[in-house]
Amino acid sequence: MAVALDPAEKRRLFERLSSVREIVFGVQDGVLTTAGVLAGLSGAVNGRTQIIMAALASTAAGALSMGAGAYLGTRAEVEVIRGELARTRQEAAAQPYVLQEELLEKLAGEGLTREAAYRVVKLLSGSPHALLTTVEAKLYGLGSAGGNALLDGITMGAAFLTGALVPLLPFIFIATVHAGLIAAMATTALTLFTVGYFQGWLANRERCWLSGLRFLTIAMSAAAAGYLIGLAIAPLGSVPSL
């Protein structure tokens, strides 16, 4: 028999799950970018060490860039939300009836009779805090403005790095470019399929393998496109081997 989570535990679970966005995005981007770089350079460059150095540089730049992007993005989001919440609180203090009326209209629009909605809002108004948090969640779709910019940045950067290592490590440890590229593509495919499958599992999908297959298709398309572009630009300039 399934045991229902208590609301506080469920809230913490949702907060943890919100990191899935950073993890999935970071891993996917790390795998795809690095696989694309490896495939592209393998088509354009002959030197194996040169390819590895370029891929390592791309990985470092990608991880730092993605981490910084996630940090700045979350920070900006949190600041905007906090500003909006402060404005709402000032409005609530000065004109509580305006928010009460807006909440009433919202509840009435969601199926409550006007009279029932009035009574719900009136009861909520017994606690200004309860009224305010309900207005924020119900009218503005805002939860707590507790996004952690640093955590999001680190998660995204680490996820990108992890993803990037997947195709990079076999390429580093296998002696020939051709065999290394095949191994990198195989681990990339396996990883992306697994990430897609995992995402499908989190979303309670019945056919998780479809999610995995979608990730796999995107990865292979990106890698193939990268390889073809590398082949196409190779004649434009000769890059000396190391």
Partner: peptide, 10 residues
């Protein structure tokens, strides 16, 4: 506008 509102009763 309507009965059961928070502005009209005033």
């Amino acid at each position: 506008p309507r009965d059961f509102s928070f502005i009209c009763p005033t």
